[in-house]
């Protein structure tokens, strides 16, 4: 039983950076904006959280700093792509490259710094209960936060008026404008939210998952998060499935490597990415489903005409 609990804890932890980043990007894309800068924002979030956590010895301050730094970076994207109507794909790619470079530069002095990472939840008595205690009450606080984020995003999108407006803006900005909504303002808010979420994902890696700073430590998770959103047909629960699938295969390949399986480690390292995409591609074959959930104006610049 304890081993099952261990596997669950590790799987959820491995999937959590993706949950943050992909849920944030999902909200951004639902507003009709395609921000390809997730990888860069995650890295900037990771490095900012690590530096602040190392300086202040407070993982929580570090996490907040990570979210803020990534949101600030997404603001750059918003100004370029929304106000100045730059091409969203090019701007997003540039943001990713910029984030990779910036985080490597800023993080150089911190490469070998050791910090005390965020502790998993430990409720005396409860977390030590055999089986259930570890299964339910012994994750990192950010894991619970990511699950709460899923519930909130789902409720926001499908149960609130504001979520309805956001989906409407992503579907047809001209119609939303015609019935009186501030399309650009709503998109700004979505992009900033997505940036903060990507930052949380990076911060989780740097201060909780493997408390350390390594150049490029997100290892392409930002790109997988982007793919997840698409293959999950913009549905939050499918994002969760994909993220935890990624987590479990990551775990399995570590186990396989540890057990000395006769396959080169590069192939094994590929597995989580391949498995996630293949499975999601198979469950999202339904064309009607895609048509109903894909934001129709995704990636198209829009500006109110004079």
């Amino acid at each position: 039983m304890n081993e099952v609990a261990q596997i669950v804890v590790l799987t959820l932890a491995a999937g959590t950076p993706l949950v943050f980043a992909a849920l944030g990007e999902l909200v951004v894309e639902k507003s009709g904006v395609l921000n390809l800068g997730v990888e860069g924002m995650m890295l900037v979030g990771a490095v900012a959280s690590f530096i602040v956590a190392a300086r202040t010895h407070s993982p929580w301050l570090g996490v907040s700093a990570g979210a803020l730094a990534a949101a600030a970076l997404s603001l750059v994207f918003a100004v370029l792509a929304l106000s100045l109507r730059a091409n969203q794909v090019a701007t997003g790619l540039a943001l990713s490259l910029f984030g990779v470079g910036l985080s490597a530069f800023v993080g150089r002095p911190y490469m070998s710094v050791v910090i005390e990472g965020m502790k998993p939840l430990a409720i005396p008595g409860v977390s030590d209960l055999p089986g259930v205690g570890k299964l339910v009450f012994a994750h990192s606080p950010l894991v619970y936060a990511s699950i709460a984020l899923f519930v909130l995003v789902h409720l926001f999108l499908y149960r609130t008026r504001a979520g309805l407006v956001l989906r409407a803006v992503g579907e047809s900005p001209q119609s939303a404008h015609a019935i009186g909504y501030d399309v650009i303002g709503i998109r700004y808010a979505a992009v900033l939210f997505g940036g903060a979420c990507a930052g949380l994902g990076g911060a989780f890696l740097a201060v909780a998952y493997t408390p350390s700073w390594v150049e490029g430590m997100t290892a392409g998770r930002g790109w997988i998060a982007l793919a997840l959103v698409v293959f999950a047909t913009w549905k939050p629960w499918r994002v969760m499935v994909g993220a935890y699938l990624f987590g479990s295969v990551t775990l399995a390949q570590f186990q396989a490597q540890a057990a000395g399986v006769e396959v080169s480690s590069q192939w094994l390292a590929m597995l989580p990415y391949v498995a996630t995409i293949v499975v999601l591609a198979i469950i999202s074959r339904d064309a009607t489903m895609i048509r109903l959930n894909a934001p129709a104006s995704l990636g198209r610049p829009w500006h109110p005409a004079g």
Binding site: L164, R167, A168, E171, S172, Q174, S175, A176, A178, I179, R291, L292, N293, A294, A296
Partner: peptide, 11 residues
């Protein structure tokens, strides 16, 4: 029309 195709009539 200024309608949203992927939403229901009520939405």
């Amino acid at each position: 029309f200024s309608l949203f195709e992927t939403l229901t009539v009520a939405d």
